[in-house]
Design a protein around this nucleic acid. Sequence first.
DNA 1: AATGAATGAGCCTTCATTCAT
DNA 2: TATGAATGAAGGCTCATTCAT
Lengths: 198, 198, 198, 198
Amino acid sequence: MGEKSVQKRKYILKKAREVFAEKGFKDVTMKDVVDACDISRGGLYLYFASTQELFLAVLKEEIDEDDEEAVVAALSGDASAGDMLALFLKEQKKNILRMKNNLTVATYEYFSMYKVTGNDNPLKVEFDTAVRIIEKLIENGVSGGEFYCEDPLGCARNLMYVVEGLKVASRTIGVTEEAIDRELMYVLEGLVPDELNN
Amino acid sequence: MGEKSVQKRKYILKKAREVFAEKGFKDVTMKDVVDACDISRGGLYLYFASTQELFLAVLKEEIDEDDEEAVVAALSGDASAGDMLALFLKEQKKNILRMKNNLTVATYEYFSMYKVTGNDNPLKVEFDTAVRIIEKLIENGVSGGEFYCEDPLGCARNLMYVVEGLKVASRTIGVTEEAIDRELMYVLEGLVPDELNN
Amino acid sequence: MGEKSVQKRKYILKKAREVFAEKGFKDVTMKDVVDACDISRGGLYLYFASTQELFLAVLKEEIDEDDEEAVVAALSGDASAGDMLALFLKEQKKNILRMKNNLTVATYEYFSMYKVTGNDNPLKVEFDTAVRIIEKLIENGVSGGEFYCEDPLGCARNLMYVVEGLKVASRTIGVTEEAIDRELMYVLEGLVPDELNN
Amino acid sequence: MGEKSVQKRKYILKKAREVFAEKGFKDVTMKDVVDACDISRGGLYLYFASTQELFLAVLKEEIDEDDEEAVVAALSGDASAGDMLALFLKEQKKNILRMKNNLTVATYEYFSMYKVTGNDNPLKVEFDTAVRIIEKLIENGVSGGEFYCEDPLGCARNLMYVVEGLKVASRTIGVTEEAIDRELMYVLEGLVPDELNN
DNA sequence: AATGAATGAGCCTTCATTCAT
DNA sequence: TATGAATGAAGGCTCATTCAT
């Protein structure tokens, strides 16, 4: 595949991403993507054989980017643990609220359809990675006397399940920005020693 | 629609429920239901005009039942607040883990597709109801000296978002029974006064 | 078939007539009639086995009535030939313009579909009858010195083909009341001796 | 759509025309056309989305042809007005009698179903055009002393309504070739000065 | 007589997929 | 590589017709 094809592949993925963000996974047809890309039916098949293949490719790009963004943002600074955790959660919040180009629904549809287990499941990898980052941040915070927490891992997991809950709720029940702030704050406040909390 | 039709309607809903539980919402076709019910194409249309209509009817039955089950189970006993909360959560856990006949995925697919707001959204109603029940139980526990909690509502919400997170995770990432226990326990332990916790 | 059934049969025909007037012949389904009559599917079949049977029955009633109306109106008076012809044409005009309950389109659809020849074709019978009436009226008018016409039959036929042309045009091209008057007058004026015409 | 597709489009229209001529408009299904063309179901939809679209396209071709035929034939010669009028009417007669490939019924069905007014109605355009041509021919004939007529427009309209009447009668009542000749002659003879008529 | 539930055929329409160019 | 015409399977929906009650 030459240079040109790589460009086109990227172009297709960009457009496909928009389609998945709009319609989820199950409702997307190859025709939807063809129309969005304004290429020929046959042309799309040269690059991707199915919506599944397309979606996995979109997801792969997504995750590669995410790693660079959130993780780096969260860990590479020399800010305090609290600030870094706040930064990380801000990133999550942005994700939850993002209306355009959000793959949450498509991703849930995909992975509830094709059960993928263990580390082949990017959703799981992402979740576990996030848990580990948060755990680390809390531990750092505890070491520095900034936080109080007897079970950093438990707390990190609790936080991420709340985030998952908020994600799905925002797509189904509807969640305001204030509600997200409130939920995340609720967890964070549990980390702050009582005397500081008042 | 006579007595006989009522029976058939129920029968169709039962079968449709199985189909939705198996395939989610978006992938289900009228033909799927026809096949599952072993009736004629036209026969199904006598009762339901679309998968949407079918799904909403299935959901309505579901929720009517739920009300009788979980709520009654949680509140009508004269057990301690802790026991009642544990019972309520056990119900939630059963729901999360139930492999057969679980509408979680279908429900998420439906409500992420057709945005329904406010009290017309049974998902929201269910969530809010659960939060209120938990809040009440916590308050009772605090009154009785069983629990310690400065923000029962916040805690109840935290718990329910965790439950939502677990639900979706169990359908996408995969969650073991132990993980569910662990997460729910994590929250519950936050309610127990420290001296008792050790 | 008892008295009650006769009533019901008439009721069905009345409703069916409305349906045919609205939708023509080909588009009408047994269901349309069932809905219009608000009776059961099976109930309709007790009286009529198909839309064809229904339509023929509707038509039969129609023609029976027509005979009594127009013909009697045209011939039984002791008015002048010109007045009687004018009366007859006024009847035709009313028919052409009638928007509600007009079977023209349905009739054309039916008889262009099922070719019926000779005196089994009520359309032909009606046409021929009308021609004969007009011919007679013209002859009377000529006898009385009211009209001048060398070929009463030819003139009568010409008139009726114009009427047919106006009927179909009113359903397809659209024809104003003035246009109908103008066309009928054009023919009538040809009957009036020149000296009277000025 | 390349050169090849243009051919296929024409082929479909030709076959569809045959179907409409045979069955009228309302009874024609996309499947009828698919079968007549011996192409795939999907293949037809590449060119036309409905029988309505198909019919309008068939009609468009029809009318384009007609313009070149009848009008040119009637007006471009240097024959006498009477001969040209006779030629024009011969064309109409051919139309009335044509058994194969006659769209009369389909056209009436279509335009009685979808009311189209003014110049968007090709039926009206065709009618008005014919009237104007005949009027012109009569005027020419009068100028040349060939005809006698005080109201050329009225006469032209009368003639065309008779033609319409004959068209519809030929599809519903049944009309012999002789009857058509007779009717058209009846009108023409009214144009010829009395002394010549004997 | 009358009902209306039930069936199944039939048409509509959309797409995944292929393939000649 | 790229195109887009073509096919046929799949699912949607409606109705004519039957039949047990």
